[in-house]
């Protein structure tokens, strides 16, 4: 009996928020600190960059959530793919055979 996959929309929502917060905040913080400490730039702490960060976090979280949900077939594209029964032999890479044949 195989264990069912534990992914679900609530988990994906939490993950999307974390991914967005980490990505935007860490990149902004690193960029701002490098510009401030190494170049003496203070514009990076102005209201415009901070507003951009504040707007970007929820927008990017929404983008990530929708991306994950679509990729995981929870909704959206993928419905055109059909399951057509077929019996095939799948090729498998055999590193031992490859070694044995090499000079």
């Amino acid at each position: 009996m195989r264990a069912p996959f534990s992914g679900n929309p609530a988990r994906y929502r939490r993950a999307a928020i974390l991914i967005s917060a980490y990505s935007v905040l860490s990149v902004y913080t690193a960029f701002a600190l490098m510009k401030w400490l190494l170049q003496g730039d203070t514009w990076v702490f102005g209201w415009k960059p901070l507003l951009l960060v504040a707007v970007l976090i929820p927008l990017y979280a929404r983008f990530c959530y929708r991306w994950i949900m679509r990729t995981d077939a929870q909704y959206g594209s993928g419905s055109r793919w059909q399951l057509i029964p077929a019996q095939v032999k799948l090729p498998e890479f055999d590193p031992h055979k490859h070694k044995a044949n090499s000079p």
């Binding site: 077939a73 993928g78 793919w81 498998e92």
Partner: peptide, 23 residues
């Protein structure tokens, strides 16, 4: 990867899909 995994997520108990997923 994505089409096969989508098929698996929609048919998680289909043995043929699981064989293809693993491959």
């Amino acid at each position: 990867v994505v089409p096969v995994f989508k098929a698996w997520r929609r048919h998680p108990d289909d043995d043929a899909v699981i064989v293809l997923r693993d491959w």
